[in-house]
């Protein structure tokens, strides 16, 4: 399984009829077992890029080659659960083939076991995010897209959820693409970091972290973050 992205441009026509370029040149390849991180300022077109990669938007210039039969799991910025179905039904509707054991284990990791029969309206944002994660993992994806899964959660909760995501990502050999604003999340979860420019987005810098995710020690993570924060992205 492999994802080859070769986008040469993407623009919107605004309501006033003006053309807005959202994406410039975005070219990269992602392999199975790899976690790519898209890192860039707010509004730079990350979500647009994800929508193209997910096949939700075919209106762009360039080419995206996805392996045939690739299963996609997606966690949107908002949880996008079905409010009229319970937590368990939400997962099972997306993943009808999931067996009970796998589902129980997934709910266990994400601490959702007691919420199985709750409706999404009864959950906090943090819990709803975890249900969205459970749904994406339950289909056993070949390609996992995470659009800021940790945004607007408090630090302690974001940290716990990040560990849960790390556990789940490590449990399966798949391609993962994560969007985040947070350098700490990027360095802890990612194998390759793509630094994007402001709109129209292009890749400014690619940082490959050689050490496997699970073995990175706190000093190593600190050192990578220190080096990255010295990058002069504005002049690239």
């Amino acid at each position: 399984m492999q994802l080859e992205v070769n986008i040469t441009g993407k623009s919107f026509a605004s309501a006033a009829g003006k053309r807005h370029d959202v994406l410039d040149n975005v070219t990269f390849t992602l392999n199975a077992g790899e976690v790519g991180v898209l890192f860039g300022p707010s509004g730079c077109g990350k979500s647009t890029l994800l929508r193209i990669l997910a096949g939700l938007d075919a209106n762009y210039q360039g080419h995206v080659a996805r392996s045939p039969g690739m299963r996609l799991g997606m966690v949107f910025q908002e949880p996008r659960l079905l409010p009229w179905r319970t937590v368990e039904e939400n997962v099972r509707i997306a993943a009808p083939d999931v067996d009970d054991g796998t589902l129980s284990a997934l709910f266990e990791v994400l601490e959702l076991s007691v919420h199985r029969n709750h409706f999404p309206g009864e959950l906090s944002l943090g819990l709803a995010r975890r249900v969205a994660l459970a749904r994406a993992f339950a289909i056993e994806p070949d390609f996992l897209i995470l659009d800021e899964p940790l945004a607007s959660l408090d630090n302690a909760l974001a940290g716990r959820l990040r560990d849960q995501v790390a556990t789940l990502v490590a449990s399966r050999k798949m391609m993962t693409l994560l969007v985040t604003h947070d350098l700490d999340d990027a360095v802890r979860l990612g194998d390759r970091l793509f630094f994007l420019s402001p709109r129209p987005a292009r890749i400014l810098h690619v940082e490959t972290i050689a050490a496997p995710r699970a073995t990175r020690s706190e000093p190593e993570i600190g050192e990578i973050k220190r080096q990255l924060s010295q990058l002069d992205l504005a002049n690239m």
């Binding site: 299963r71 997606m74 949107f76 996008r80 509707i93």
Partner: peptide
Amino acid sequence: LDEMATAFALPRGRAFRH
């Protein structure tokens, strides 16, 4: 929610029902 159904490749019948 339509996008969610498309991203998860829900078959038409299931998407309509749920």
